[in-house]
Measured scan of single mutants.
Amino acid sequence: SFQYVPVQLQGGAPWGFTLKGGLEHCEPLTVSKIEDGGKAALSQKMRTGDELVNINGTPLYGSRQEALILIKGSFRILKLIVRRRN
């Protein structure tokens, strides 16, 4: 089963996490790295392996390109929903 975790990061880029996968690579869009001391790490809500399913209220369909555009369009606040295996 899965758990959906809301994450809100503040203060602008860099957000402190790296993505891998996506439709382009025929795999889920997941968090591959969280930078020590970065905003994602400080939130204590994101983990490597989390799947990104929503950015700023926009549902994602797995495209890494789409996710990067939405993330780049976030100035002060980035709201994410990640899906994690229980």
Rank of each mutant, 00 (worst) to 15 (best):
L80P: 01
R76W: 05
L29R: 02
N86P: 13
G73Y: 12
P28Q: 06
L9P: 06
L78Q: 06
S63T: 10
H25S: 14
R83G: 03
G11P: 03
Q3H: 14
L42Q: 10
L42M: 11
Q3E: 07
Y61A: 15
P28E: 06
G38H: 02
R83W: 05
Q44F: 10
T48L: 13
L78W: 04
T48K: 11
Q10N: 14
S63M: 06
S43A: 09
I81C: 07
D36T: 11
I69A: 15
N56H: 00
G21Q: 00
G49S: 01
T30Q: 09
Q44S: 12
L68W: 08
G12D: 07
T48P: 14
Q44N: 14
I69K: 15
V31L: 09
G49R: 02
L29N: 01
Q3D: 14
P6C: 14
T30K: 08
L42T: 09
E66V: 07
D50I: 02
I81N: 01
Q8M: 14
A40S: 06
H25C: 15
R64M: 15
T18F: 15
L80W: 04
E51N: 03
K72I: 05
G57R: 05
A67N: 03
R83F: 00
L52V: 14
K45A: 11
E24R: 07
Q3G: 03
T18L: 09
Y61W: 10
L78A: 01
G11A: 00
P59W: 09
L68P: 02
K45G: 10
A41P: 04
L19K: 01
I71L: 13
Y4M: 09
S1E: 15
Y4G: 02
P6A: 15
T18Y: 10
R47A: 09
S1F: 08
T48W: 09
K33E: 14
C26G: 15
I77Y: 11
V5G: 04
I77K: 14
G16W: 05
V31C: 05
L68R: 12
L68Q: 13
G38S: 10
R64N: 08
A40Q: 07
C26P: 05
K45P: 03
D50L: 01
R84Q: 05
P59F: 08
E51S: 03
L60K: 01
T30N: 11
G12L: 04
L19F: 09
Q65W: 06
L42P: 05
K45D: 09
I69V: 13
S1C: 13
P59M: 08
R85H: 08
P59K: 14
K20N: 11
N86F: 12
G12M: 02
E66S: 09
G22V: 04
G62P: 02
T30F: 03
D36N: 09
P28F: 03
I71N: 05
G38M: 00
G11R: 06
K33N: 14
L80A: 04
A67L: 02
L9I: 01
R83L: 04
L23S: 15
Q65C: 09
G22I: 00
M46D: 02
E35F: 14
R85A: 12
L60P: 07
R85S: 12
E66L: 11
Y61L: 15
L23D: 15
E66D: 09
S32W: 09
K79W: 05
A40R: 02
R76V: 07
L19E: 05
V82F: 10
D50P: 00
S74F: 02
V31K: 05
I71H: 06
Q44M: 12
T48M: 11
G57E: 08
K72C: 07
I81T: 13
G37Q: 08
F17L: 02
L70F: 06
F17T: 04
M46Q: 04
Y61P: 08
G16I: 05
K33D: 15
R64D: 03
L68H: 14
A40N: 06
N86T: 13
K72L: 07
H25A: 14
L42R: 10
K20C: 13
P28L: 06
R84L: 03
Q8W: 09
